[in-house]
C-alpha cells in the first residue's frame, strides 16, 4: 500500500487558516489502512482543528467527508457537492489523491493533510516499512524477493557494502541490512549462485529518472 503520515496539526492549521469554510476529505483505501487519512482520522482531525481555532477565537466551518479513493474519478465525483459548499479542501489522501482532486476541481484550493512516505507494508503493529521504490523494472526474482534497490541504503546490486554488521545497515541499528536478508533468503532457497554472477548497472529509464511516467494501455482505450 501507499503509506502516509498525517501532517502536524500546527502545519495543517496554518494551511487552512485563510479559509472560513473547509472540507476535510478522508480517503478510504491506503491511507485508511495506515491510519493517516481514513474516516476515523478525518473525524479526529476535524475535532482537533475546531478546538484549535476556537481557542484562537476564530470561527471556521469544517465539513467532513470520506470517499473510497481520491485517485479515482468515479469516487471523486461523490465529493463534488461538498467541495462546492466549501472554500478549500484539506485532502487526507496521498499525493496522487491530492493531485487528482486538484485536477477535478480546478478553482478550489486542495491542500495536503498527509505526507506521503512510501510504498510499503505493515510489518507489525505500529511499524510500516518501505518495500518498493516503483523503479519500473522488477528484479525480485534474482534477489529472492528482497529488493536491494529499495532496501539497501546504497542501492547496491552486487552484494553488501563493508558497513553491514550483525544483520544491520551502517546507517542505523534499526535498519535491517537488505543484503543480509537477501543472502539468508537465497541460502534457504538454495539459490546463492544468483549472487556469484555480475549484475550490470540498472537501467533507470523505467524509474522516475526517466521523467514523470505514464502507462498507456492500448487495450483499455475506448
Amino acid at each position: 500500500m501507499i503509506v502516509g503520515e498525517q501532517k502536524p496539526i500546527a502545519e495543517i492549521k496554518a494551511m487552512v487558516a485563510p479559509y472560513n469554510k473547509v472540507l476535510i476529505l478522508g480517503c478510504g483505501t491506503c491511507v485508511k489502512t495506515c491510519f493517516a487519512g481514513g474516516e476515523d482520522e478525518a473525524a479526529v482531525l476535524t475535532s482537533a482543528l475546531r478546538l484549535a481555532f476556537k481557542k484562537d477565537g476564530k470561527n471556521i466551518e469544517i465539513e467532513t467527508q470520506t470517499i473510497e479513493r481520491q485517485c479515482e474519478d468515479g469516487f471523486i465525483k461523490e465529493s463534488a457537492a461538498a467541495v462546492s459548499r466549501n472554500e478549500a479542501v484539506l485532502s487526507l489522501a496521498c499525493g496522487a489523491g491530492v493531485q487528482d482532486m486538484a485536477r477535478r476541481f480546478p478553482v478550489t484550493p486542495v491542500l495536503p493533510g498527509v505526507n506521503t512516505t512510501f510504498i510499503g507494508v505493515l510489518e507489525k503493529q505500529g511499524l510500516f516499512t518501505e518495500e518498493c521504490l516503483g523503479c519500473g523494472h522488477c528484479e525480485l526474482a534474482v534477489f529472492g524477493g528482497v529488493c536491494p534497490v529499495t532496501r539497501c541504503s546504497k542501492k547496491l546490486l552486487n552484494g553488501p557494502c563493508g558497513g553491514s554488521r550483525d544483520g544491520k545497515c551502517e546507517i542505523s541499528p534499526d535498519t535491517d541490512c537488505a543484503w543480509q536478508l537477501i543472502i539468508a533468503r537465497l541460502t534457504a532457497l538454495g539459490q546463492m549462485d544468483n549472487l556469484r554472477t555480475y549484475i550490470p548497472p540498472k537501467d533507470w529509464r523505467t524509474s522516475h529518472a526517466g521523467g514523470p511516467r505514464k502507462l498507456v494501455r492500448e487495450d483499455h482505450i475506448i
Partner: peptide, 13 residues
C-alpha cells in the same frame, strides 16, 4: 563486515 561467508564471494566478484 557481515555476512562473513559472502565476503570472499564478493572479493571474487
Amino acid at each position: 563486515a557481515d555476512p562473513f561467508e559472502y565476503r570472499v564471494i564478493r572479493l571474487a566478484k
